[in-house]
Nucleic acid binder design. Structure first.
Lengths: 139, 139
DNA sequence: GCCCATAGTATCAAAAAGGATACCGTAATG
DNA sequence: CATTACGGTATCCTTTTTGATACTATGGGC
């Protein structure tokens, strides 16, 4: 994902948007960023414990990509039980308005989730797809 | 993508964020949304012409997912040369602050793209060669 | 001597996303 | 009669992403 990210810039007005989306796109990146916004500094397993269902490999991947993109800083302490601290860079902290806007939108429109877990899954049995009966007439 | 979207809500503070990201996640969704923000109403092939490198199948997919998520409205006119109009719903228009924030961030931090096709990391592909900036770009 | 914690790698397999191509039915156009 | 435009489907294939599992090195506690 971090490899071919900037391969489609044929969308003139959406370039920056897409580029920014690409940075926070990833199954766990937002959550990681969010936790780092809250806690400032976290070690690898601290993050892991805060996101129970992430696997070690995925967390490593996401952290590496975030680091490549300059959003987080990785500080390795040459200790023998390894110690690695993750924190946001200035650039990463700059994402706050985006995450804020995302969260606001989500809170406003998707607040049916979050309280009861799996609430509405509008996959294929939701009636909002085919408006067969009320099609406006042609001109 | 639209199928397993709400399957990981174990991230207490990031729920809404992730849910919102999931909606605009997809290779062409942002661009489509952006164009619809600009033009209000567009037909299928109008969108297609504005995004030259999207395939018919992908555009259909993205539009269907956006529709499923309630972000766009699909109006089918029962004409014989088919006519389908796409427009944003209120919910879709509500995404504007997000896209705005994304674009601002991108403009601020990634402005090395878009003007001169260097300075980035073109990776292994073509270094984003087709960079014809000629559209009005009113946003 | 054995096990745990730390922060990862390596490898394989499955699933999802995306791309390429061909096809559909009809109306108007040439 | 053939072609074009419209808005898609259907099918096959490749690439990308994700998951599961096993493995590493080392020091300290038991």
């Amino acid at each position: 994902m971090a490899k071919v990210r900037h391969s489609r810039f044929d969308c003139t007005p959406g370039c920056a948007v897409e580029a920014a989306v690409a940075l926070i796109d990833g199954k766990w990146k937002c959550v990681v960023l969010w936790h780092l916004l809250e806690e400032d500094v976290l070690r690898f397993n601290e993050i892991r414990r805060r996101i129970p269902s992430v696997t070690q490999r995925m967390l490593t991947n996401q952290l590496r990509e975030l680091e490549e993109d300059g959003l987080i800083h990785r500080e390795v302490y040459p200790q023998v039980p390894p110690k690695v601290e993750y924190s946001l860079t200035d650039m990463g902290r700059g994402l706050f308005p985006i995450l804020r806007a995302l969260k606001d939108w989500g809170d406003e429109h998707l607040n049916m989730f979050g309280q009861n877990g799996e609430a509405g899954k509008p996959t294929k049995d939701q009636p909002l797809s085919t408006e067969q009966e009320s099609t406006p007439l042609a001109v």
